[in-house]
Write a protein that binds this DNA or RNA. Structure first.
Lengths: 268, 268
DNA sequence: GCTAAGACCTCCCGTAAGGGGAGAGTCAAT
DNA sequence: ATTGACTCTCCCCTTACGGGAGGTCTTAGC
């Protein structure tokens, strides 16, 4: 017969836990001194304690452990319980995995946004764009809706995202409503999905200009690009691209006056 | 200005939750009627609510959401928080995965034990054993220690376990202490581990006898086997094998009087 | 003006599995 | 007899709210 402290060491259950199990009727002491109220445990109770610990390690709630101890004598009796537990676990795991992917997507984009952009501003630049793997969602509506596309792709692609959010605009000019555009991300690896369209985006020669400030006043920036194109005798290709070097995040919107957008037009 | 019920629908947060966030100072109403105590929210608070929901979905505790809301203005500010959260998640996931493997191991052995053994008892049988993939832990000590080997292999091999626990006994005769033996399981797929030895176990012609009851009285069963071998003029090979068709489980010990063990001796 | 419905308020209790600590009693050895 | 280590009960605390009691407020209809 051991007092609770000793039994605690033998079972690696805390004294508090042992008292708690006593309250629940899960593991009653073998004797209680009527005068002092001291709990005393026999060696034979070690076996029951061991079973409790095993079941606890498997994630069973104490109450269920109680019914298991009452009903089961052999491992085979446990099968139903084990299978239910396994199901629960699969569900929990799937949730956590989803959460993990979401986190990884956020981290990857946040990391890239942190790398400060040091680019010539307010000056048209010509560059050659490489083809890239891209996943996007195309939609019609107001430009403000593009955030939905990003978050949808973000959820699916998670840590496969390889760069900043990219917008593709298929209309000829500016459209207040019912615009035709696509939002998405460059990817490291292709994904297969029903909603998200994953494909190779063509490269080529392009003119590019960095726009500072809210999206609403990017009209002049487009004008500057088109002027440059006209001077050079190029022909602009559709869709135009906007790279959101710094824009509203997935969580915080940030300050629109500090948004930085690179506008790219492929030319011939 | 919307009363709490309306705001609740707009944010998809329960009224109780909104009141709770008010208590925590996480999302205070924009106005409180001094007479009635009614909470009223502005449209501009929707944004803050949205951020809270997003962070909650990522698994942040409310208190941390509070500090995030106080400190962060843009997604990049979140990076540290996101990374910490990701770490936590990895840890939790690893735990759950381990738990899942343990469960799968238990389920697989319990399923097999459930299939009732219908075998000729108390009668020596000759059979040809197939080679099998086996993972075991070899040890010296009392026979009672073999359970440790099983649980160790069980934890590592999980759902790759393909059959009942198997004991290999390398000593010539019975040994009270300091016996040399190995406990393990047949596997479906090989595993690579430092502690667990995984290899092909040879097959061959064998004599076999089913033993009923506790391990302590398996002496006569061995005697019967050896007698049979002598009659036939065979030579027994080492190690002898014991297949624990029904024995103490991983969780419950069950009743030793109902244990069923098949003893196998490879012969030449 | 009266009443009823529905929305809202505060306050309290409960969750799972104990942990922390207060204040008091007990055990074993010196 | 006195320490010091152990143990007892009782109460509060943790997360993120949910349930419910009992009371107040607003609004619509008569």
């Amino acid at each position: 017969m051991f007092p609770i402290g000793q039994f605690s060491k033998m079972t690696r259950l805390s004294v508090k836990a042992l008292r708690h199990y006593h309250d629940l009727g899960l593991l009653a002491p073998d004797k209680i001194d009527p005068d002092s109220g001291y709990r005393y445990y026999k060696t034979s109770s070690l076996e029951r304690a061991r079973v409790i610990v095993s079941l606890k390690d498997l994630g069973f709630p104490l109450e269920e452990i109680g019914t298991i101890l009452a009903d089961c004598r052999e491992d085979t009796d446990l099968l139903q319980f084990l299978e239910t537990r396994h199901q629960d676990l699969e569900t929990r795991l799937a949730e956590l995995q989803a959460r993990k992917h979401a986190l990884e997507g956020l981290i990857s984009t946040a990391r890239q946004s942190r790398e400060q952009v040091r680019l010539r501003m307010d000056e048209v630049v010509e560059k050659d764009l490489d083809p890239m793997l891209f996943a996007g969602v195309r939609m019609k509506g107001g430009y403000g809706e593009i955030g939905k596309a990003f978050s949808r792709v973000g959820r699916k692609a998670g840590f496969k995202i390889a760069g900043k959010p990219l917008g593709l605009f298929y209309d000829e000019g500016y459209r207040e409503t019912d615009a035709d555009f696509e939002g998405g991300f460059p990817l490291r690896k292709p994904i297969d999905d029903e909603v998200v369209d994953c494909r190779e985006l063509e490269g080529g020669h392009a003119v590019s200009l960095i726009h500072n400030g809210p999206y609403s006043d990017c009209g002049p920036t487009y004008q500057a690009l088109l002027t440059h194109i006209a001077e050079k005798g190029y022909t602009p290709q559709s869709p135009s691209r906007e790279v959101y070097l710094k824009g509203p995040g997935m969580i915080f919107k940030g300050n629109p006056a500090r948004y930085i957008t690179e506008i790219q037009l492929l030319v011939e």
